[in-house]
Design a protein around this nucleic acid. Sequence first.
DNA 1: CACAGGATCGTT
DNA 2: ACGATCCTGTGT
Length: 195
Amino acid sequence: MKLLPQDWYFRDVQAVARDLVGRHLKRGDVILRVTEVEAYCGPSDTAAHTRMGHTPRNAPMWGEGGHAYVYLCYGIHNMLNVVTGRGDGTAVLIRSAETVAGLATICRRRSGKTGPALLTGPGKVGQALDLSTDWSGHALFRTGGLQLLEGTPARRLIAGPRVGIDYAEPDDIRAHLRFADADSESMTHRRQFKH
DNA sequence: CACAGGATCGTT
DNA sequence: ACGATCCTGTGT
């Protein structure tokens, strides 16, 4: 399976977000197919971490596309984002996935859990890939560690509002910047999506 | 240095 | 509905 080249990420965050659904994340024997994502559109997006400008944590979001941005949420969950563009503070959050390979490893990392909700949620994806904030800034377009591969893009997408951003401005809360594979079962808050 | 709050999850 | 769990960003 082919790696996506770095210039694949050098596009508008929303275009990359839509194109990211169906792609594969590979680390060791584990391969996940991305089924749900959210676009965070830079400093003017009051839901984005870059809304406050440059900080040590969000530094990877201000760098070149193709790198991971991993941060700790609620002191527990390691959230994986894919940085897009070329230094414009944009990134795509990986929210849900399907198992392609490495089910036994994933199951072990997820405390023995399995079933349809195995990878529905950004914290679960981070756990399945055994990520920590040490991975923030990692290049996804090179062999080794964590990689983003061509995978099998979605035939149809559905879109809806982003989750867990009540602190943002109303227009940003309402914006349809969450995208999922319409033909997948693996997603969060299914009823908030529209066709 | 202290504080408030968070792009969540699993259980109650 | 709630607690876990800790780092981040802000203010003093």
